[in-house]
Structure formats: C-alpha cells, structure tokens
Nucleic acid binder design. Structure first.
Lengths: 201, 201
DNA sequence: GTCTATAGGCTGATAGAC
DNA sequence: GTCTATCAGCCTATAGAC
C-alpha cells in the first residue's frame, strides 16, 4: 500500500501555505482575503477550510514553522570554541538564512501584531530563544575579555537589527554579491564589539 | 476678525490625524476601518470625508508629514566639523527623535507597502534623503582616513537599522535610561566604523 | 461640518450535494 | 476533498437633510 505520491489533499495543503506566505508577505495579513488565497491556489474558498481551521491558524503556523526551522538550522551548525569566531559564524548564518527566505522573515517581523494573544506568546517565545544565541556569544566574549561592550544585551539587539535589515535592501542583481555583503557585515560587527579581524595572514 | 480659537473643523481634522496615527500603529492600516477612526474621534464615519478625501490620503499625509518633520529637525541641528563627532550627533539625534515618536516611526516602516505607487514614490524619496545623512557622514570620515569601512553605503544602512531597532525593545520603565542607551549606541557605532571614543580627556 | 441613510461590494466561515 | 450557495456582517465612500 505504499503511496508513491502525496494525495491531492496533501498537495493542496502545501500550496495553501506557499500561497498564503507569498500573499501575506506582499500585501500584509489583514489585506489578504481567504478568497484571494483560494483563487491563487486554484480552489474555491470553502475548500481552504478542509486544510486549516481559519485564517489566523494559517498565519500562526507559517510563523511558528519559520522560527522553529531557523532554530533547528542553527542547531545543526558546528560551532567554533572562540567567541569571536562564533560571532562570525552567527553573522554569516543569519544573513544566509534570512536572504534565502525573505518572505518568512518579512512576515515574522511585520505580522506579529496580527496574532491573537496566545499565538503571539508562542511565537514570541521562539523569537526570544533565537535572540539568546547572539546574546550568549557576546556574553562569552565579554567574559573572556575579548570583546569591549558596554552592554551585551543592547549589543545583541543592535546586531540582530543590523543583520536582519539586510533583507530590506538586498537585491540579487545588486552591486554586491551575498558573499561580499557577509564579509562587510563581519567586519562591521567584529569592529562594533571591539575586536578586529584576526590579522597576520 | 481675529480667530482666537481654531474652528470646530480644524479641531476635528487634527484629532482625525492623531487617532488614525494611533490606530494604524496599533493595528495596521488594513486592519483599521474608517468607522473605527470615526468612533474614536467622536463623529460619524461620513464626517471624516469633510477632512480627507479617503483613507489612503490619511496614511500618505501621516507618513509625509513625519518624514518631512524628521528632515527639518535634522536641518536645525548644529553640526560639528569632525566626521566622528558628526556621527555621534547623528546617533543621538536619531535615537532621541525616534523614541519620542514611536507611532510615526512604526508606521513609516510598516505601512509603506500599503501606499499606492505614486504615494510610495513620494515617501520613498523623503526616506532616501534621510538615509543620505549618515551616508555622507561616513563617506566624509572614510575620505579623511578616520574611519575603517569596507563599504560606506552598507555601513550606513546597517547603522540606521541598528538605531531604528531601538524602538522595538525600548521601554520607558526599562533597565536603561534613554541617555544610557544613547551612550551604548554611540560606543557601538563608533567602534563599528573603526574609531574609538576620543580618549585623552 | 455633521448627521442619517444607503449603495455596492467584500469579508470569514459554514452547510450540504457530490 | 471540492464544489456551489449562502449567512450575517463588515467595508469605503457618497447623497442629501439640517
């Protein structure tokens, strides 16, 4: 009884998520109607409710899946021992991951306020877990006397904002390759925490 | 014939802008109805159209007014000659101005996509004017050999994102005073561009 | 300038046939 | 699982009385 293909329903469920993500990112959750999603998926509006209980669940799942995948992806990274190198690893990871998923990133920052309280709490907890990553790296570097920071919490928030901001202006056809952008940010971030790129080679 | 008070209409027009700003910031443009604005202003929905042609104009004017006021405020600053000092002036100015007007800042970043194309172009032009300020400071510092930046454009965007990000986590009752936060950011930014705070005094 | 009333259309979500 | 049809309510914007 091996199923070699997904059923029609599984296919539809997947397409609904894809379309919802795309439209929420483009127009905003509140500005997108279930009918519009259905049209783009290629089904009637009523059929959507075979795959999700309501519009709010659609958004919540998109955000939760994104945040969980982000945390999992970081979890699979091999981490160097040196805090300065950890910081560089994080900078490159964050830029790479976020530039590959601009829509997910966008809704993660823009649509939080459209979550009902319980759903918001859930996503917020995942977000704080992710924020803890740079925070811990900075704290370690500061403890080791390698960094020069007045406040590691503020520095972590500043670095995150800085890195995530790349998604607002990056264009694939732009002046700078992604690799080059990473390099520029690694320098900026390393300088900002009070170390310089390891010279001597 | 001196009018000592504004007419009732002027008062209403002002309140409409205030209420629209507050609600757009809180719930998002698409999620706020004209009826909701009218209710909070204390008039019937139809009366709003005596003061603005439509909902879109309400948003456009709020954004344009904010951006213009921001540019004007910077224009009134006295600017030191030294690029490093200019940068510090800008950091403090940006944080101060933005923390005083969280709602305006919020809609300026969140609601751009809800602007119709012509309105978007208008606001975007103002935004680029503002972005030119840190860009020019960084270019001057780099030319003078005072800064150590791989790319002044990217650095300017990074610094702006970093500074504006303060509005997402700052709380008046929080651990850090605004003054202290400014100090932390001045250090972070000065380090990131490759200078250290001028010592020796 | 504000009111009431309304036009014309869209909304999220459900019911029941197939 | 998808369809058609529909409910009940909301939306922006306008018309005309005062």
């Amino acid at each position: 009884m091996a199923r070699t293909h997904g059923s029609k329903g599984e296919e539809t469920a997947k397409r609904i998520d894809e379309v919802a993500l795309k439209l929420f990112a483009k127009k905003g959750y509140a500005a997108v109607s279930m009918r519009e999603i259905a049209l783009e998926v290629g089904v009637q509006a009523g059929a959507l409710y075979n795959h999700c209980p309501n519009k709010q669940a659609l958004l919540t799942n998109l955000l939760a899946d994104h945040m969980q995948a982000l945390l999992d992806a970081w979890g699979e990274m091999e981490l160097p021992k040196d805090p300065a190198q950890q910081l560089e690893t994080f900078v490159r990871f964050h830029i790479q991951y976020h530039l590959k998923r601009p829509d997910q990133v966008f809704i993660s920052y823009m649509e939080l306020r459209n979550l009902e309280p319980d759903n918001f709490k859930k996503i917020e907890a995942l977000r704080r877990q992710y924020e803890a990553i740079p925070k811990n790296i900075l704290a370690a570097g500061q403890m080791a006397g390698q960094f020069n920071l007045a406040d590691t919490h503020v520095a972590a928030m500043a670095i995150l904002a800085q890195l995530t901001g790349v998604t607002t202006w990056y264009r694939e056809q732009g002046r700078l390759s992604q690799q080059k952008i990473e390099d520029i940010y690694v320098q900026l971030v390393c300088q900002s925490v009070g170390i310089t790129l390891s010279g001597g080679h």
